[in-house]
Design a protein around this nucleic acid. Structure first.
Length: 502
RNA sequence: GGCGCAUUCGUCUAGGGGCCCAGGACACAGCCCUCUCAAGGCUGAGACACGAGUUCGAAUCUCGUAUGCGCUACCA
């Protein structure tokens, strides 16, 4: 059964103009998956041929995001490789050389059209009119003598059609005349994307081009270039775009509010937002590809074994973030408690005002972790669930004393409950969860109060909140003295409150 | 406008002529469990864009329409 595909060389080729976003991460993920599936290489190549939009922070963000997800590259700018360098601005001479070759062989020509002239055409909604495609040597010499800057344009075939085979969509055919002699080499001497991508994919022996579907319209041009050079073209795999959660339009490159909720396209926001790399990996792998009809959760190894570019769906997808949250919760519940404890520390330490070192060895957090494990979806959910345990009793105020009154109980009855609770907490031996539970339950029964109602006042007294981790465990975390202090404070608060009611 | 790509529950998807009066998942609703909240279990509601054709038979093939999206730079 094991089909052994030829090792593929696939590259993720972002341009360092902004921060890594989810769409880019998904592309990189598919690159990585396919490379590993075939036993090939995953290559990171930086396409920084647009110096105007270059953003120096971008590269670091890009690499950090990729590594966070676990997408290590086999060749790339920081680790080198047999086809180095992997940053296009450092490969400038090569592009010039290949552009010259095209010019010499009649596949390209120098164009001296000025920006103003181009602007004129655009204003009239006209494409470039190939005006310098057939310049005489004299005309060319005249422009050069003038000192006019020039670009190199591709001399696209003027008749016929070009067909590109896309692995996901099949054949795509366009009229050659629709390719209007695009610029290959800019007047600053750097190549445009079109030249650079073709030259580098060939030089780096890329076998499969995975990129967003916004590149479909220029794929025929790339095919023409491979043909002009006499090089075999790699397989084209155009990935479906990722849409805003609203489902309308390409995912924007900034934080947006959809249905009253803010969502971010930036990977770094998910790192700080408490998401687990494994969950994000699983989530993204399900965008445009699926493991099979009814298994949503799978390991990286399982995905690698099954992944194939030809199974990718051509349909654009809106990101279902609620599913990401669900997945994150699933992965959190699968963690060993000690592992979760460690993962929580960097998120909790600032919120609790503690050092990471202290918190990593804190007994309370170790004890609390398994209690909140099935109650949090994000690592950032933990703080409001455990902060009460790290506060002194005096800091637990009861701004809404009415919360200390149990369901179907009067204030007086609730006061009685707290009194009973204080008695139990003071006397119970040993001060352990099982003993506490047995004592509270039998006392509730003795007082003919439902357990839920009986525990409610105590819960608020102990944690300051009507919703908390399991009560007996919570008291155990605090210890006898601290628990008692809180119940006493709560009794006072409720007593004062009851007085105002009367 | 031109060119291109796409179209199964609200969303992510399975399915590629009969297995489908369409399966799974998230979200949603109800019930169960339960010290709160979760988690878990069960149940429910919910889709083949439309129209022609091909065929004994179409979600699946063909054509058209509609809608959406993308591209149309000396940006990638």
């Amino acid at each position: 059964m094991a089909d052994t595909p030829a090792p593929a060389r696939v590259r993720f080729a972002p341009s360092p103009t902004g921060f890594l976003h989810l769409g880019g991460l998904r592309t990189a993920l598919f690159d990585w998956l396919f490379a590993h599936h075939t036993g090939g290489q995953f290559i990171l190549r930086i396409e920084d041929t647009d110096q105007k939009r270059y953003n120096p922070e971008s590269l670091q963000d890009l690499m950090r995001g990729l590594r966070w997800l676990g997408l290590e590259w086999d060749e790339g700018p920081d680790i080198g490789g047999p086809y180095a360098p992997y940053i296009q601005s450092e490969r400038k001479e090569a592009y010039g050389k290949y552009a010259d070759w095209l010019v010499e062989n009649g596949h390209a020509y120098r164009c001296y059209t000025t920006a103003e002239e181009l602007e004129e055409l655009r204003a009239r909604n006209l494409p470039y009119d190939r005006r310098h495609r057939t310049l005489t040597p004299e005309q060319r010499a005249a422009f050069e003598a003038e000192g006019r800057p020039s670009v190199v344009r591709f001399a696209a075939p003027l008749t016929g059609t070009t067909t590109v085979h896309d692995v996901i969509r099949g054949d795509i055919t366009v009229e050659n005349t629709s390719v209007v002699d695009p610029v290959l080499l800019k007047s600053d001497g750097l190549p445009t994307y079109h030249l650079a991508v073709v030259v580098d994919d060939h030089l780096m022996e890329i076998t499969h081009i995975l990129r967003g579907e916004e590149w479909i319209p220029s794929a025929p041009l790339h095919k023409m270039l491979f043909d002009a050079f006499g090089w075999p073209a790699p397989e084209f795999v155009h990935l479906p775009v990722i849409l805003d959660p609203s489902g309308k339009g390409k995912m924007s490159k900034r934080r947006t509010v959809v249905d009253g909720k803010e969502f971010s396209p930036f990977v770094s926001d998910y790192v700080t937002g408490g998401y687990l790399p494994d969950a994000m990996f699983n989530f993204l792998a399900n965008m445009g590809w699926s493991f099979d009809g009814d298994q949503e959760i799978f390991t990286r190894a399982e995905a690698i074994a099954r992944f194939d570019v030809k199974d990718i769906s051509p349909k654009a997808t809106a990101l279902p973030f609620s599913k990401l949250d669900w997945l994150n919760g699933m992965y959190i519940r699968q963690m060993a408690p000690s592992e979760l404890h460690q993962a929580l520390v960097p998120y909790l330490a600032p919120a609790l005002g503690m050092s990471e070192g202290d918190l990593a060895h804190d007994r309370r957090l170790a004890e609390l972790t398994p209690l909140i494990q099935e109650r949090i979806k994000l690592l950032t959910d933990a703080a409001p669930m455990v902060d009460w345990a790290f506060l002194p009793a005096e800091a637990i105020t009861y701004p809404d004393p009415a919360q200390l009154i149990g369901k179907k109980l009067s204030a007086a009855e609730s006061l009685d409950v707290l009194a009973a609770g204080a008695e139990i907490v003071a006397d119970i031996e040993p001060f352990e969860v099982a003993a506490l539970e047995a004592a509270f339950r039998s006392r509730a029964e003795a007082m003919a109060i439902k357990v839920g109602s009986f525990l409610a006042p105590v819960r608020v007294a102990i944690t300051g909140r009507p919703v908390s981790p399991p009560l007996f465990e919570s008291m155990h975390v605090l210890g006898r003295e601290e628990s008692l202090a809180r119940i006493d404070n709560a009794r006072q608060a409720l007593h004062d409150y009851a007085a105002t009611l009367a």
